[in-house]
Design a protein around this nucleic acid. Structure first.
Length: 823
RNA sequence: GCCGAUGUGGCGAAAUUGGUAGACGCACCAGACUCAAAAUCUGGCGUGGUUCACCCCACGUGCCGGUUCGACUCCGGCCAUCGGCACCA
């Protein structure tokens, strides 16, 4: 029996306990049903769930439940991205162990997730900071290492002083650390990299295959990879026999306009290229450039500076002798680190040439050319360019490049902006890099059978200025896996946490496997992920790294798919009072409070209402209450009729009264609308509108109690119950059980609708004269066009408007309108 | 500068993809129930005009123009907001 009133906390506690016992959400690796993999981006166990999590996981959960009801074998797992800096900082602050802090948080948040009623298969939980997981992260590192995709090199890398570690390029946002927002500097260090650049072309090209991704994310990735096609040209240095400076250009068409050359301050041959009388000035300039922060260096506002090196190159096209300068507007790690300068046709070169009074030669012209202004228009025509005069951009670029290739000083070159992924971190709380340095053998990989390389526990977290891991002497010293030398030492760095999260969705498919990372047959069965849901902030970082991992593992034969995530839904932010919820703004809402006061079903219902998933969602207290009231309204309906509802209702649609027939049609219309809205774009806001409409319709139907057909009413109420069951999971379960349902309502198949019944028997016919609405008439649906035309023409209002005029033509839209065009 | 997304009542939004603009809700207003309040129920709610009132009329989807019998929807040109990339040669 349902109680008189709806008490969410009581009902939800009851089902929470039952589900703990029965574990109803198992994904079956051997099912014959079609598979569906629904995935949420795994959370970082920061301590408490926030509303962004609630939104993310509710969306995925509703999708998972809907697909299950449609007959799919659904995989809906969850895990913890549990390595990372906050745990280590908390440990330093409280002199505790990062593992304790992390596992405590996980335990608490896991309960919060369960209270939210998520249909997760917890037996597949993956926790990246535990040895049974990071063992395989290390194993994957070794596979990449074997393939030459993990390598160590000394390079100027991004360094965050506050986090005391290096960062990948993707983790530097506007010259600042992605995590702590403090300024990033450059440091020369020997570090591990993953060779993601080997996959630049595939990562870019395969974006076209991702129909289920938004253009915004695809564009962001394409921008980040940054492909450009150009030419490398090699210029002989006049003063030094045998020395050449190669440059990369996409404007080979402007080669006749080169008047000087610029190299980056870090350019390798710069000392050779500097004449003794310029040495001091150049050295000063390079020292200054080093001091600049990334933000200053990359600012386009900055006034360009540079000094001449004293040497020259000869432009092979014109024979012109051009001075070589050093200037920090040339970047050492893009192209060749040197650029050809064509002041008349490049804004940067123009500014620089003006400032230092360097020569300018015009080689492109067009109707909008103005003397004394830079001209970058690609529509222009070549002049002063010898035999290439008169050509346009595309043609000239090709012809000049080909000429340079023929003459042996040029080659075509495709250039990417993407850099290799720096994965070393000078921190404790991460997966140790499984590499040993032996005095005899040098760099040696740890044997696979010796994995995992466990994190040491004898560390001092209070040390300043170095990684806590360095304080562990037991960890540092080891024996060489190759020669047994006992003087070997371990790599003291750990891996970027993004390495751990680049493959977690693969582990879920076979989470308990202690022999392999995952089984190939099983992963090929489940993958790719059918629907991935998460925040836009991972548009580049996590999503690009995961795509790289997938392609690399595919090439090793470990799996057989090209892309990990078939469909991607990037959910909007949860806002309150117009700004993002954050602790510092004090506008957060605690899920526990909502559970306590209104129940998780209210939270789930509200977070899906009002805004489509991809858009930002504004949290309002009034909105929560509105959803709670709606749930109460639904509950009262079942409470009132609990003794009249028949699970085995039966009626013949052909023998219904007009009122019952209309009512049944409304139910079919709702089923159709809700099914389509979930299926197509996960438009949960309109799904919830339809819940309300159907509920209102039912309330309308029961007004005349003596006219109620209880079979028809049962059909309506049971349909509504199933329709809301993916969203209001506790409520629907409680009601269905109290009505005598034997199984869980989640086990029932999704509602079916009849195409013929999913429309009204009467429609409103719109009558337009010259496209203006003049009248509306109720008519039967599905009438012939000729009949509709006849009705429209004989309507009393129509006569008024066509009086004395000539009918030019009549347009009939079936079941919609008739438009009479008159003159 | 290049690229992407968005722009509809006081607010969140909807519109079967060219066919009644504003569904559903929030807020607000009025009424019923109540000693009263809450809860619940009923009704109203784009702007302007006209009318005692019902009606009716005009305008209205960022701006300007176009295609069409008919445009939130398609085309051309702008503007604004948000996001990504950017001394990338």
């Amino acid at each position: 029996m349902l109680e008189k009133e709806y008490y969410p906390s009581k009902i939800e506690k009851k089902w929470f306990d039952i589900w703990e016992e029965t574990k109803p959400y198992k994904a079956d690796n051997n099912s014959a049903k079609p598979k569906y993999y629904a995935l949420s981006m795994l959370p970082y166990p920061s301590g408490k769930l926030h509303m962004g999590h609630v939104r993310n996981y509710t969306i995925t959960d509703v999708i998972a439940r809907f697909k299950k009801a449609q007959g799919y074998n659904v995989l809906h797992p969850m895990g913890w991205d549990s390595f990372g800096l906050p745990a280590e900082n908390a440990a330093i602050e409280h002199n505790a162990n990062p593992q304790t802090w992390t596992l405590d948080n996980i335990a608490y948040m896991k309960t919060q997730l369960k209270k939210l009623g998520l249909s997760i298969d917890w037996d597949r939980e993956a926790t990246t900071c535990l040895p049974d997981y990071y063992k395989w992260t290390q194993w994957l590192f070794l596979q990449l290492y074997k393939k030459g995709l993990a390598y160590k090199k000394t390079a100027p890398v991004n360094w965050c002083k506050k986090c005391h570690t290096v960062l990948a390029n993707e983790q530097v946002i506007d010259g600042k650390c992605w995590r702590c927002d403090s300024e990033v500097t450059k440091k020369n260090l020997s570090q591990w990299f993953f060779k993601i650049t080997d996959y630049s072309e595939q990562l870019l090209g395969d974006l076209d295959k991702l129909d289920g991704w938004g253009d915004n994310v695809k564009t962001m990735q394409a921008n980040w990879i940054g492909k450009s096609e150009g030419t490398i040209l090699k210029f002989k240095v006049k003063e030094i026999e045998g020395l050449e400076i190669p440059v990369y250009t996409t404007r080979a068409d402007t080669c006749y306009g080169i008047t000087y050359l610029v190299v980056a301050p870090e350019y390798p041959d710069i000392e050779k290229l500097t004449t003794p009388e310029n040495r001091e000035a150049v050295e000063n300039y390079r020292q200054n450039a080093k001091k600049l922060s990334e933000i200053e260096r990359l600012s386009t506002e900055r006034i360009k500076t540079g000094v001449p090196l004293g040497t020259h190159i000869i432009n092979p096209f014109t024979g012109r002798v051009c001075p070589v300068w050093v200037a920090d507007y040339a970047l050492v790690d893009y192209g060749t680190g040197a650029v050809m300068a064509v002041p008349y046709h490049d804004e940067r070169d123009f500014d620089f040439a003006k400032k230092y009074n360097l020569d300018m030669v015009q080689v492109v012209t067009g109707p909008d050319f103005e003397a004394d202004k830079v001209y970058v228009n690609k529509e222009g025509t070549l002049i002063n360019s010898g035999k290439f005069d008169g050509m346009k951009y595309e043609q000239a670029k090709k012809a000049i490049s080909e000429y340079a290739i023929e003459q042996g000083f040029g080659e075509f070159k495709t250039q990417y902006r993407l850099r290799d992924w720096l994965i070393s971190r000078q921190r404790y709380w991460g997966a140790p890099i499984p590499i040993v340095y032996c005095p005899d053998c040098g760099e040696v990989a740890v044997d696979e059978k010796d994995l995992p390389v466990l994190l040491p526990t004898d560390v001092d977290f209070s040390v300043k200025g170095k990684s806590p891991i360095e304080t562990s002497e037991s960890f540092r010293h080891t024996t060489c896996p190759k020669c047994g030398n006992t003087k070997a030492i371990r790599d003291m760095d750990t891996m970027d946490t993004f390495v751990c999260s680049s493959w977690y969705y693969m582990r879920y498919t076979d989470a308990k496997n202690d022999k392999e990372c995952f089984n190939k047959e099983i992963i090929d069965k489940w993958m790719p992920v059918d629907q991935y849901v998460g925040g836009i902030e991972h548009a580049i970082l996590h999503l690009l790294y995961s795509r790289f991992f997938t392609k690399a593992l595919r090439d090793m034969g470990l799996l057989s798919f090209d892309e990990p995530f078939k469909n991607l839904l990037t959910q909007g932010m949860v806002l309150k009072d117009g700004s993002k919820m954050s602790k510092s703004k004090g506008n957060t809402v605690d899920p526990d409070e909502i559970y306590k006061n209104f129940g998780a079903d209210t939270a789930r219902l509200f977070i899906l209402s009002d805004s489509p998933p991809a858009r930002d969602f504004d949290w309002t207290d009034a909105g929560v209450e509105g959803c709670f009231k709606f749930i109460c309204r639904v509950y009262r309906l079942y409470e009132k009729f609990q003794n009249n509802i028949k699970l085995d209702y039966n009626f013949d649609v052909k023998n219904l009264s007009k009122k019952d027939d209309d009512f049944v049609r409304q139910v079919h219309i709702a089923i159709k609308k809700i099914t389509n809205d979930i299926q197509n774009e996960f438009q949960f806001n309109t799904v919830i509108s339809s819940y309300r409409e159907l509920t209102n319709t039912i309330y309308e139907y029961i007004k005349q109690e003596n006219e109620i057909n209880y079979d028809v009413l049962s059909f309506a109420l049971l349909s509504l119950l199933k329709l809301i069951s993916p969203v209001c999971v506790f409520l629907s379960e409680e009601i269905y059980a109290s009505l005598g349902g034997k199984e869980s309502i989640q086990e029932l198949p999704w509602c079916k609708y009849d195409e013929n019944l999913a429309k009204n028997s009467m429609i409103t016919l719109i009558i337009q004269i010259n496209g203006k609405i003049k009248d509306k008439i109720e008519v039967e649906s599905d009438l012939e066009n000729s009949k509709l035309e006849e009705i429209a023409k004989s309507a009393p209002k129509t006569a008024e408007f066509i009086e004395g005029k000539q009918i030019v033509k009549t347009i009939v839209v079936p079941n919609k309108l008739v438009n009479i065009v008159v003159k």
